[in-house]
């Protein structure tokens, strides 16, 4: 069975719930960039959202924007990837607990659990379908997307919502700073095009994809497949791409979305992957606009799908500053510390 990305919505450090970044992006400044918040009241009444943290409000808002009202309760699955869950709530509970183990408020604990995000979407959508949450570092979103494809292949899904959500607090940012995650200065597009030093910058994201088994006039593209590979050999990586292409009659990969983030070790691996898997393809970069998080690869898939829908890859998101018109096939590559890898193939429809 085929799978299509029928609609996508994002809230991030770019203009929320829009594709404004495609033609007119915001240029992030600072080492920790926070969500540009949409008007949450458009989707959530104050009574409903009063106990919700930012990550949850963003998840619900992008989910609302992505799935048409009449299809919400009928979703066969709600699949969520989140590296850290609602860490704002986790920290609130942890800090209170470290002051003393009595009289602790339950709301923060309840919201701290990773699957609160996906559960709340199900509760508000009144959706009894499959509900799953992945928290596997840099391939959390990819795991959710792969699981969705698997369920379509098993004919258990006709439609599904896949979310990739992560927020970054000041405190967690400081912790990651202790172990060298971030650059000591702003990251520029030049860093992402050609990294010479370690570290990246933090972004936040809630990306929602509405998947269907039939294309429609508004579909962004076909989602051919997502494969997860753990510490793969070059041979396995190559064989994996060849197999997906063969199965979907793809003879040429026009572009690859790569996760360059300005960290020299991270980016060197993408250079190697492109050489290995699609040396002639146009290379799409996006983390200079969106920053880094455990589920930023979800934005990567969304960026690739948007380019197919718009039939254009603008120069401001390519590694060599050259635009490409009318791309037909895009491969989205992701790796986390050269351990976890994912490969997603998108095809225009």
């Amino acid at each position: 069975m085929s799978v299509y990305i029928d609609k996508a919505a994002q809230i991030s450090i770019q203009q929320p719930l829009s594709n404004e970044w495609f033609s007119n992006p915001l240029l992030p400044t600072g080492r920790l960039c926070k969500f540009v918040r949409p008007d949450f009241k458009q989707y959530l009444s104050p009574a409903v959202s009063r106990r919700m943290g930012t990550a949850l409000k963003c998840t619900l808002s992008s989910a609302f924007a992505c799935v048409p009202e009449e299809k919400r309760s009928q979703l066969d699955g709600i699949l969520t990837g989140t590296g850290l869950g609602s860490i704002e709530n986790t920290e609130n509970f942890l800090l209170a607990m470290l002051q003393g183990e009595d009289g602790l408020s339950p709301s923060n604990f309840m919201q701290s659990t990773h699957n609160t995000l996906g559960s709340q979407v199900a509760i508000i959508f009144n959706c009894h379908g499959y509900n799953i949450t992945y928290a596997h570092r840099g391939t959390s979103f990819d795991s959710a997307l792969m699981n969705a494809v698997v369920k379509f292949r098993l004919n258990e899904f006709k439609s599904a919502l896949v979310n990739g959500v992560d927020e970054m607090t000041e405190k967690y940012f400081q912790l990651f700073d202790q172990i060298g995650y971030w650059k000591d200065r702003d990251v520029t597009i030049e860093d992402v095009r050609k990294a010479t030093s370690p570290g990246t910058f933090a972004g936040e994201n809630s990306v929602s994809l509405f998947l269907t088994d039939q294309p429609s006039d508004q579909s962004l593209c076909e989602l051919c497949d997502t494969q997860l590979l753990y510490r793969p050999s070059d041979q396995r990586l190559k064989a994996c791409v060849e197999k997906i292409c063969l199965e979907h009659n793809v003879s040429r990969i026009d572009a690859v979305v790569i996760g360059n983030n300005g960290d020299n070790i991270n980016d060197e691996e993408y250079r190697r992957l492109v050489q290995l898997l699609a040396p002639d393809a146009t290379q799409i970069i996006y983390k200079h606009l969106f920053g880094e998080s455990f589920t930023m690869s979800g934005i990567g898939v969304y960026v690739g799908a948007t380019c197919l829908k718009e039939k254009s890859i603008p120069s401001h998101i390519t590694i060599d500053n050259k635009a490409l018109e009318n791309p037909q096939t895009i491969l989205v590559l992701n790796h986390f510390k050269q351990l976890d890898y994912s490969i997603t193939l998108l095809k225009s429809c």
């Binding site: 869950g85 659990t113 992945y134 570092r137 795991s143 997860l228 590979l229 753990y230 793969p232």
Partner: peptide
Amino acid sequence: GHFDLMTTISTA
């Protein structure tokens, strides 16, 4: 151990 595919599920 060596695994070909690996992930983590977190649904409480």
